[in-house]
Design a binder for these strands. Structure first.
Lengths: 235, 235
DNA sequence: CCAGAACAGCCCCCTAGGTACCACTTCTAA
DNA sequence: TTAGAAGTGGTACCTAGGGGGCTGTTCTGG
């Protein structure tokens, strides 16, 4: 991509705001962007690990879920929801081992892509990047540990309440990152099924914690949600 | 520790065999070892994240489980079992954020320790280490993703069978890393409770997949275990 | 503007797996 | 050596939550 591109400045700005690239100089980011191309993924488009392995992606806008699935039962478990400023796949960047993960766009997705090999070269030119990557990975690992243990340590209701709390914008009290998701997707996020989520949403409505309109959850009472998430709620 | 130490050579050898340090020169490892001290943890001794945060540990012998727990219900979920050549805590090495994880020795544990700050200095002197760390982290992240999704995607029986298969020594057909563990600990590894494990062990005995003596499981029939782990077993 | 898809809200049923209790075995200290 | 404690394993009972289905409503694309 050349600086003549209409969206060039917007892309550059997005790169600068990314936690993954936050310590990089504008000059190095310009160099990076010059090697990238844009791609638009339609909502619900779907890739597996192999397709993604040889290209490094940077999300400009939209949301992407990273999940594993059991083809026999059809069940899915979402591990991450990535959005603006996130990158994938970090693991393919570190080594070339495959892993059976799937990616699916939750909205229309705008990504910048660059061949994996070129990305590796770019990183080696800027040793400061190693630290940034380690930091980014550390953050992801913490999240993963929580996902890994949540299912066994907490009930589905507690997990749902915790999910809502985790994704509330402190000022507006509105959901972010997981807003406008159908019950299906919420179920995947807490490792259960749609019907259970639906059932619990009714419970939360009943005790005044939330109100609901189609694909939209509004948090009404933080205290109640908190007490549920901390497991000292007697319904 | 000085080279005069009786166990010095043994420790050096262990360091060389570690996947974490495998690309380091003998010279650099000698420098590292000189700054380390030995410590012995008795079986079942117990540390939390805060105690471990400021010191970097390297396991010489013995096993250590890394787990999260829910104090209310008393349930635990083991995320990793570390042993010879493994190190902890890698996350505290990357940044100084706390994470609520616990460590507990499964056997008598022999560790080499070094202040975290010194370890960071050592790493910065050997830039090749960055790559090794990234690789090591990548490996751990893959494992974590599996742990995270296993619970929702597979039944407890399938997870138990998979656990056994994952830990069988190819030649001797004996369990390693998870041998001599009580049902309690096995339960923690697959995210369930002791009684469920006990029940499934009875099933596996009944269909000839394993035989059992106190704290010891012997794998008798790999095919049966495999078909269970792949979910095409009709009990 | 309409047909079909996507989505949420119930149901009911039913079993995987968690709780609780008991029984046996091994260890420890007197 | 022996009583108790601690560690370990087996099992009967019960419930959280998964499966499937059916309805009404809203959204989407032709």
């Amino acid at each position: 991509m050349t600086p003549q591109n209409i969206d060039y400045q917007r892309y550059l700005q997005e790169l600068q705001q990314s936690p993954f690239l936050k310590d990089s100089s504008t000059k190095s980011l310009n160099r990076l962007l010059s090697q990238m191309t844009v791609e638009h993924w339609s909502a619900k488009s779907f890739k597996n690990s192999l397709e993604v392995a040889s290209t490094f992606h940077f999300i400009v806008s939209g949301r992407l879920k990273v999940f594993k699935s059991n083809p026999d039962s059809g069940r899915e478990h979402t591990v991450f929801v990535l959005s603006d400023g996130d990158v994938f796949d970090v693991l393919s960047l570190l080594d070339s081992e495959p892993h059976d993960v799937y990616w699916e766009a939750l909205d229309v997705l705008e990504v910048l892509k660059i061949p994996m090999a070129q990305m590796r070269l770019w990183i080696n030119e800027y040793p400061a990047m190693h630290k940034a990557i380690l930091y980014y990975l550390g953050d992801r690992m913490r999240q993963l540990m929580d996902v890994a243990t949540d299912v066994t340590l907490h009930s589905t209701l507690v997990r749902l309440a915790a999910l809502l709390l985790k994704n509330i914008n402190g000022e507006t009290n509105k959901l972010q990152l997981i807003n406008n998701l159908p019950n299906d997707e919420i179920a995947g996020l807490i490792g259960t099924t749609r019907s259970v989520v639906s059932r619990h949403i009714q419970e939360l409505k009943r005790c005044g914690a939330i109100s609901v309109s189609r694909k939209k959850i509004n948090v009404k009472n933080l205290e109640v949600l908190l007490s549920i998430a901390e497991e000292n709620y007697i319904p």
